[in-house]
């Protein structure tokens, strides 16, 4: 299979890339790792007139901590999330989730920002972004804006990015000391898109859950954060009762579509089961951390 004809541009600076996006708008498509875009091109499902390859832009290759935030530039490969111990210390949920993204070969090329901008509703990194409250930095010739993750994903493969904007950076808040995080998913084969995936975070204190985060992939048109289920975890002083209430809430509220791979009912069932498993795991990790020991 071969892609349709397109004009190829590989700017060496962010400014040049933004200039190209301003000029071509919706006719242009940004190429980073190419792990989603190349298959779409080869199947001729995508037919951009111009492909703007950002792989020559060294200025976008940074992974740094600044004032309690992990900043991930647009050219950072997913593989770096699992290889750098600092990432686990700052945003452990990223390290947990990234091993479910495709296969090592895919993660060697695929970028963090590319996965976020592609916005597949069953992908792992968008769910992580929603769970931790990441902020997405969109740059265009007319300026810079930061979009909260929950407002960034607006539909399947659809984001709040304008055609002239580049997702230049993703910012993840560093975890607090009493938090534990977990990410689990069920897919037909490891590396496939999730039938359902759950990202959970809990803050332990006084022997109970004080605060919680729950986000789901594969359970709707966009990654969803379930505040009702989070509230259920905080309200119950008994962990297992809280987990039962949160799982029931996930099953009640989520409305995943059924398809060839899994019915809607099965996906809701998975959401409930994975809620319980991730929360238990996150709880164990949170207690280990708050107890002074390191997991």
């Amino acid at each position: 299979m071969k892609p349709p004809v397109f004009d190829y541009q590989d700017p060496a600076s962010v400014e040049e890339a933004l200039e190209l996006l301003a000029r071509h708008g919706a006719a242009a498509k940004v190429l980073a790792g190419g792990q989603s875009l190349m298959p779409l091109l080869n199947l001729r499902l995508a037919r951009p007139e111009v492909v703007v390859d950002i792989n020559r832009i060294d200025a976008l290759d940074y992974l740094t901590e600044e004032s309690g935030w992990l900043r991930v530039g647009a050219r950072v490969r997913q593989r770096r999330l699992e290889r750098e111990a600092e990432v686990r210390r700052m945003v452990p949920l990223l390290t947990e989730a990234v091993r479910f993204v495709g296969h090592p070969q895919i993660r060697n090329r695929g970028t963090v920002c590319g996965s976020l901008a592609h916005a597949d509703p069953a992908a792992e990194l968008p769910a992580v972004a929603v769970a931790v409250g990441a902020r997405l930095v969109a740059r265009s010739r007319s300026g810079v804006r930061e979009i909260p993750a929950e407002e960034f994903f607006t539909g399947p493969l659809t984001t709040a990015l304008r055609p002239d904007e580049l997702l230049a950076e993703a910012r993840f808040p560093c975890t607090g000391p009493d938090w534990g995080w977990a990410f689990l998913e069920v897919s037909n084969r490891h590396g496939d898109y999730a039938l359902c995936a759950v990202a959970a975070g809990v803050r332990a204190g006084d022997g109970r859950i004080q605060d919680a985060r729950l986000a789901y992939a594969g359970a709707g048109p966009v990654p969803v954060r379930l505040r009702e289920a989070e509230a259920a975890l905080v309200e119950h002083s008994d962990l297992e009762e809280g987990i039962r209430a949160a799982s029931a809430e996930a099953r009640r509220v989520l409305q995943p579509d059924g398809d060839l791979h899994a019915s809607s009912e099965f996906r809701r069932h998975l959401a409930a089961v994975l809620t319980a498993r991730t929360v238990r795991l996150a709880w164990t990790r949170a207690r280990t951390r708050s107890g002074g020991a390191h997991a």
Binding site: G155, P156, L157, Y193, P221, D259, L260
Partner: peptide, 10 residues
């Protein structure tokens, strides 16, 4: 196809 219902709804 797994995304078509979501897209159709949008």
């Amino acid at each position: 196809s797994r995304m078509i219902p979501g897209i159709a709804r949008m």
